[in-house]
Design a binder for these strands. Structure first.
Lengths: 159, 159
DNA sequence: ATTTTAAAAGTCAAAATTAATCAAAAATTT
DNA sequence: AAATTTTTGATTAATTTTGACTTTTAAAAT
């Protein structure tokens, strides 16, 4: 119907992701750096807009870490953390699910895991049905079930 | 049976299904997106009516996933993961599972379905976890959940 | 060596905009 | 008549944009 992701923040997000793509071909470094001021100017926006994009799209739970410096020669460095090992993946997932999570946030997480190809759409469907099926759907119960289901998918012997 | 002809919700449902039809001819994307506000205006109803339609007709159990954002550039994205299976197919599944089933027999059935490549190993594991997780795991509840999950996965597209 | 200055980036909150939730009322079906 | 589904609207929550104010940094000036 509409092009719903044509907003400023998503544009900046895409640009940053492109920077990562360009970088990947050349060498192994999994970070990029930029100047907040320049990026803001390029997109014709206020500098704090960049902070918003970083906070909302390049957060640790999405697999990114930010390093920066102010003043002259200031910069922002965005690191993409990789989850190669099974244990790393498990830890990361258990961390971001935590001890309790709302159904809404669980669905958001599933959306993200699908984007990263951790799970398929069919698997996502099954997990959502299971989460919504729970009668006593306290956020603790939701987190427990979600972690069970995700952990079983990450097990290497299943692949 | 209910009157599917003359109510608002069914009209909105049909409109959304038409959006999918239009989309299918053009390209491969299995989703459509819309603005809740616009759709409500188009049908001359309150916006929360749209949520009702989504909840009652485009649920995960029926093979749909919803993604949405609020605020400026907000949207609702509806993904169709599986087409609704034929009635025969669904009846077949419902016959096999029955009104009640033990977890043990459910697992046997899942193994059978896996051997026939109706489901993957990962999907089998997810369903088993969901079944075993139910607190009040009466055989009726197990059958109900199992049917929900299988109905969504087993459809004519698969074979 | 210390202070000043200019150039970054960070923080925070308001405003605008949009969707979600929830429960009561109304309509329909059983 | 009871149960279920649909409709409605008031309230709440989330997202994005913007800008005023703060903090940090390193070079330049003293």
């Amino acid at each position: 119907m509409q092009n719903y992701e044509n907003n400023l923040s998503s544009g900046i997000e895409k640009y940053i992701l492109e920077l990562f793509d360009d970088r990947d071909e050349n060498d192994e470094e999994n970070f990029i750096s930029l100047r907040r001021k320049d990026l803001a100017e390029m997109f014709g926006c206020v500098p704090s807009q960049i902070n918003y994009v970083l906070r909302s799209r390049f957060s640790p739970e999405r697999g990114y870490l930010i390093e920066s410096r102010r003043g002259e020669y200031g910069y922002i460095k965005i690191l993409r953390i990789s989850f190669d090992g099974t244990e790393e993946k498990k830890e990361h997932i258990n961390d971001i699910v935590g001890d309790e999570i709302s159904v809404r946030n669980a669905c958001r997480l599933l959306e993200f895991l699908r984007e990263r190809d951790f799970i398929t759409d069919r698997e996502r469907l099954l997990i959502e049905i299971a989460l919504k099926n729970q009668y006593s759907s306290s956020n603790e119960d939701i987190a427990a079930l979600l972690k069970k289901m995700l952990n079983v998918l990450i097990n290497p012997e299943d692949k």
